[in-house]
């Protein structure tokens, strides 16, 4: 079973993602801020990260930079309510960018694509 790390400070949304992705057959870990995410990634084997951008403290792009320096090969999907950053080259370090939506089909498809399932 592949491990997915969901990083989002919206707790209710994290729970929803956890539930939905578990239903899809993934093992899901949740971090509610950037520091916790880096911590979890150091202690666990992570196959893919779903990462929010706007978070208190350390924001998603800073977390992304940390991941790239330490775990360059882990696929990262930026998942933000900011659709405007989708075309911004500040997000190019990520493997994919999915705008948050109540419909998680796009996110799930992108996860399968990156994990080659």
């Amino acid at each position: 079973m592949q491990n997915i790390l969901v990083v989002d400070d919206e707790i209710e949304l994290s729970k929803l993602y956890q539930q939905e992705l578990r239903d899809e057959g993934f093992n899901v870990m949740v971090a509610n801020d950037g520091f916790e995410a880096i911590n979890l990634a150091q202690k666990n084997t992570i196959d893919l990260v779903v990462l929010d951008i706007k978070m208190a403290g350390m924001d998603g792009l800073e977390v992304l930079n940390e991941f790239r320096m330490k775990n360059a090969d882990i696929p990262v999907i930026l998942n933000s309510a900011y659709s405007t950053y989708k075309d911004d080259f500040s997000t190019w370090l990520a493997d994919a960018y999915v705008v948050k939506s109540s419909n998680l089909d796009e996110l799930k498809n992108k996860i399968r694509e990156l994990l080659k399932i």
Binding site: L13, E20, S83, S101, S102, L104
Partner: peptide, 21 residues
């Protein structure tokens, strides 16, 4: 515009997401 969209989209994703679930 971007900030407004962001603030609405987050709770909407939660509400709509649970409705779908």
């Amino acid at each position: 515009a971007s900030d407004v969209a962001h603030e609405i989209r987050n709770p909407l994703s939660v509400a709509g997401g649970y409705a779908r679930n």
